[in-house]
């Protein structure tokens, strides 16, 4: 059997891991070493290394199952301890290799656990309805004049629409920077993920911000206040909050 590693926590591993089932339905347990705990499960290595996935329906279902199972374990831990999530699909040949990992990288893991302790990740997405957003007088069609022919009027209108769309896009992008800065101001750390694919998320309009914010637990309300302050559906501006999350987006040292 191989050892699948979900996360690393400070000792002792919380009681609530016991009784949990992991990505293969296996019991979740912990490996304690040098003041750290690796939260693991024993899995059949063939399930993870057999052959390259082809991206068919079956593989995708398997991926979704893995994502959800991995997340369930990490999220359960995050309830009462500082948890450092490992990337999905970290599998070792045995427990002693995991002990070696805890030994070799102890200083790094302890520093990261220290950095994320007492903090929670929140996700904030900013969605702009491109039609309702901030229609200003300058966005209106210019007057082509009474003498203009139908073709000219059409071309002018097309060009005007493009310019209007560009201006709205620029304003939406500027608003995203502003919202991100306001959220960042109450956060200990922040990151912007790539906007989500609308085909996957099903969102409408422009997703101009897909941010992750690591917030001190005492400052959650401040973050929520910023979200409420900018949320303005009548103007085509919608903020979506997700969380609390285990600090997935902050498990590695901040990237520039």
């Amino acid at each position: 059997m191989a050892t699948y590693v979900y996360a690393i926590t400070r000792r002792p591993a919380p009681e609530r891991v016991r009784g949990m089932r992991g990505v293969s339905g296996e019991p979740v347990r912990s490996i304690e070493h040098g003041g750290l705990s690796a939260i693991v499960g024993s899995v059949d290595p063939r399930r993870f290394s057999e052959e390259p996935a082809r991206g068919g329906e079956e593989d995708l279902r398997a991926l979704e199952g893995l994502l959800r199972a991995h997340h369930r374990v990490v999220q359960a831990l995050a309830g009462d301890t500082t948890v450092l999530p490992l990337r999905l699909g970290t599998v070792y040949r045995g427990d002693e290799r995991v002990e070696a990992l805890l030994e070799d990288r102890r200083a790094e893991f302890e520093a990261t656990l220290e950095r994320i302790a007492g903090r929670t990740e929140w996700g904030v997405k900013l969605l702009v309805d491109s039609a309702a957003f901030d229609a200003e007088p300058e966005d209106r069609e210019p007057d082509a004049g009474p003498a203009a022919g139908a073709g000219t009027r059409y071309l002018l209108r097309r060009r005007s629409e493009e310019r209007s769309r560009q201006r709205r896009w620029d304003r939406a992008a500027a608003l995203a920077d502003q919202v991100h800065a306001a959220l960042d101001a109450v956060a200990a750390a922040s990151r912007r993920h790539a906007p989500q694919d609308a085909r996957l998320s099903g969102h409408r309009g422009w997703m101009v911000l897909n941010g992750a914010y690591l917030v001190d637990q005492g400052r959650d309300r401040e973050l929520l206040a910023v979200v409420r302050r900018f949320d303005d559906p009548e103007r085509g501006v919608r903020l979506e909050l997700t969380g609390p999350w285990a600090p997935y987006s902050f498990a590695e040292e901040e990237r520039a």
Binding site: R87, Y92, A194, Y248
Partner: peptide, 23 residues
């Protein structure tokens, strides 16, 4: 989609010995 953002691109990367091909 929110899980994909977090679990596939994030988390501590260690040199695991078996590759999870599906991910």
């Amino acid at each position: 989609v929110d899980l994909l953002d977090r679990l596939l691109a994030n988390g501590v990367v260690v040199a695991a010995e078996v590759t999870l091909s599906v991910a």
